[in-house]
Nucleic acid binder design. Structure first.
Lengths: 252, 252
DNA sequence: GAACAGCATTCCTACTATTGGAACACAAGG
DNA sequence: CCTTGTGTTCCAATAGTAGGAATGCTGTTC
């Protein structure tokens, strides 16, 4: 969609993105050049430039590169400007302790949604989510908690697209999804068993702003086999938290 | 220091950095161009390129730019790969040389804490700690440096348990411990004389992560009889180190 | 211990892609 | 309705990048 772009800058951005995607901490010049189809010389120049700005750092011994302090500052700057985060983050540990399961916070990013924080309980078998990864709005508790509280037009538009299947339990039929969403609105929270992630289950409820729109979603989630027995208690604790936060955003 | 750089990429990086520095969430093209001495056209091209990679997003209404999801993922990727040990271990020899005493690194393991590394000075009478042995959180400098910076709930929970006596100097009274912890938080470091180990004394301070939680503790310790004369100087050197490391973990 | 392999880094010229002034479009405010 | 401030596009000049090849370095193999 962006119109006037600069190829050099896009390639440089690709290098940066590769650091975020790669599971490994460090990347070498050759490795980057091959995976991006660039020449080693070009990759090296870009890395040297990023290095001068602290975006990446060079380990002098291994001659390999990793992300730098500036990269971290970018991430924290992004999170700082999300004010619902400041409001909700302190609630997650309390919710996790109360329920004995993982509590998460998500925000919407267009037609997707990402976890931006989580608090995990202190026990052996726990569930942990991936922060920063976009997920579709129709699969899983947190996603459906967003979708259910969007406007009728937005829901219709979203459901008219092709809906990705993430697990065998993902619902992709628009009719069945609409029934789900109606129930979610009536109960005030969404429940999901293995819709986004096999073996996982969750309850999720939105924090509504003064327009009644979902500013964020909190979920309580855990391993599916034991979670079902706790689901009702989790939902009660969850709603108590989200109702209070919604009120703080001016929702009544 | 970097040798072969690419001017275009450096300018692009400067734009990115500006988003992290600026207190405001959004920036406009003109604003960026003027503050960086670039032409509006160049800034616009760079932003368009970053936009295609999700590093920045454009608010269609206000025509202003802010950081995007990819920026957050960079920050989280940086934080993920930070292994406190790798960060702090190289600092221990320097701290030991500077103070003439032993420098140690501890991490928490639930309701206990273990030394995972140490650096000893080159002199005849030195103190040496046992790596890998769990110690309780209420006795000794390193332990109390952890305890003091946990959440109020965690402290209360810990103090409600029965507290082991390790030496005649160990404090086990919850009231006196709370007074200790308050002082530690105010000074930024903990001091202990023979609380965990007879004949030993130490100062200890936490490395705090971006949540303000203690990721690790560094201590400087030595034989009690001579250590007291050096304690203030050791604390100063210690805090200089831990403050810098906390910043690298995103604490501010 | 010498030859080798694999890596990062530098060099240098052809040439492609960026540059930036100016023109344009659009919105808000006087 | 004109003005002033945006962000965006256009285009020719040229400055800066690209990339193949050479170099230097490190660690490994025989």
């Amino acid at each position: 969609m962006p119109s006037q772009t600069a190829a050099t800058v896009e390639r440089a951005a690709d290098i940066l993105v590769r650091f975020a995607e790669a599971g490994t901490d460090t990347l070498g010049v050759t490795e980057l050049a091959e995976s991006l189809g660039m020449s080693k010389a070009a990759v090296h120049r870009v890395l040297a430039s990023f290095r001068s700005r602290g975006l990446v750092v060079l380990d002098e011994e291994s001659r390999r590169y990793s992300l730098g302090l500036t990269a971290m500052r970018l991430g924290l700057a992004y999170l700082d400007r999300i004010d619902v985060r400041r409001l909700a983050t302190p609630e997650l540990p309390a919710l996790s302790r109360l329920t004995g399961e993982t509590a998460t916070l998500s925000i919407r990013t267009g037609d997707t949604r990402v976890y931006i924080d989580q608090a995990t309980p202190e026990r052996e078998v726990i569930m942990s989510v991936s922060l920063g990864v976009p997920y579709p709005l129709h699969a899983g508790g947190s996603s459906k908690a967003f979708l259910a509280f969007l406007s009728e037009e937005e829901i219709t538009r979203y459901l008219s697209r092709s809906l990705e299947t993430m697990t065998p339990a993902t619902v992709t039929d628009p009719g069945r999804l609409r029934t789900d969403l109606t129930l979610i609105r009536r109960r005030g929270y969404a429940m999901s068993i293995a819709e986004r992630q096999s073996g996982a289950a969750s309850v999720a409820a939105p924090i509504l702003d003064h327009h009644g729109r979902p500013a964020a979603v909190i979920s309580v989630c855990g391993p599916a086999d034991r979670f079902m027995a706790e689901a009702d208690a989790c939902a009660a604790a969850l709603l108590q938290t989200t109702d209070r936060l919604s009120a703080e955003l001016g929702h009544h």
